[in-house]
Design a protein around this nucleic acid. Sequence first.
DNA 1: ATTTGCATTGTAATCATAACAAATAATGCA
DNA 2: TGCATTATTTGTTATGATTACAATGCAAAT
Lengths: 142, 142
Amino acid sequence: MNSQIKAREVLAMHGISPSRPRVAILKYMQENFVHPTADVIFKHLRSTHPSLSLTTVYNTLKLFAEKGICVPLSINDKQVCYDINLHPHSHFFCTECGRVFDIPQDESAQLLQSTTLGGHRISEVHVYFKGICSSCLPHESN
Amino acid sequence: MNSQIKAREVLAMHGISPSRPRVAILKYMQENFVHPTADVIFKHLRSTHPSLSLTTVYNTLKLFAEKGICVPLSINDKQVCYDINLHPHSHFFCTECGRVFDIPQDESAQLLQSTTLGGHRISEVHVYFKGICSSCLPHESN
DNA sequence: ATTTGCATTGTAATCATAACAAATAATGCA
DNA sequence: TGCATTATTTGTTATGATTACAATGCAAAT
């Protein structure tokens, strides 16, 4: 299939050898454009890949994140979920069902003050940056 | 002291009885305008409140959050930290030292595309909303 | 002083994630 | 083709944050 090839291509582009579990996990993320946790992926692939272990899923997701294939999201305090959508966009986390929805960036920019967004009722807005703070940065020239 | 009074006032305003641990925890948060985890608070108050238990800190922070005195932040995947600053603002998480800095909202709005912010080097931008999604919302009239 | 009910405590349980060592597969080369 | 070397995967065990829960303590009201 197409996504099978695509998954292998993506792995190759990032210098990752295309082992069975890696291809399966990436393919899953490409086909199911959700924001899965390690556990969700594990449970979905269990039937078709009986030997797959949860540890492998964790390792693989961490590897993907390091290589820039996906991004870990700490939206809720329980589990980390992963996003293969690398285009700039925001997220909406439903406190009822726990699903994470993608929100186009321009939509979210103007709606930072609004209370509804695409039919969802917003109760919290979170914006945060990650990086290296001024005191941890190597000092340039003094 | 002033903040002692202020802490008790805030508790009263939110219908929370001012027990020793609650006053101490709130006072700590008001005086040290950081973004502490339960553990950080516990360790700081341990010396002056020898009988304090970690469970009480967890319970109290959860209570404060429910009553709207503070906001839990899931910025990093390890521990939840709490913010008593309720004014709209963004956060900067340093991946080196783990500290969380407040970022004025207007500053962050324009700098969503920038790579530095008040001397910090930005590598990730996260925007997310929380609320109830359209399918979990009670249907209005149909 | 006694009751009543909330608050705190300490311990034990849970759950996500990481560490680690053993088993397995993949790759290159004689 | 068959072995040697290295990378991956697996299963189990450990860790660390958070919660559950039962027992104790405390404070206001009678």
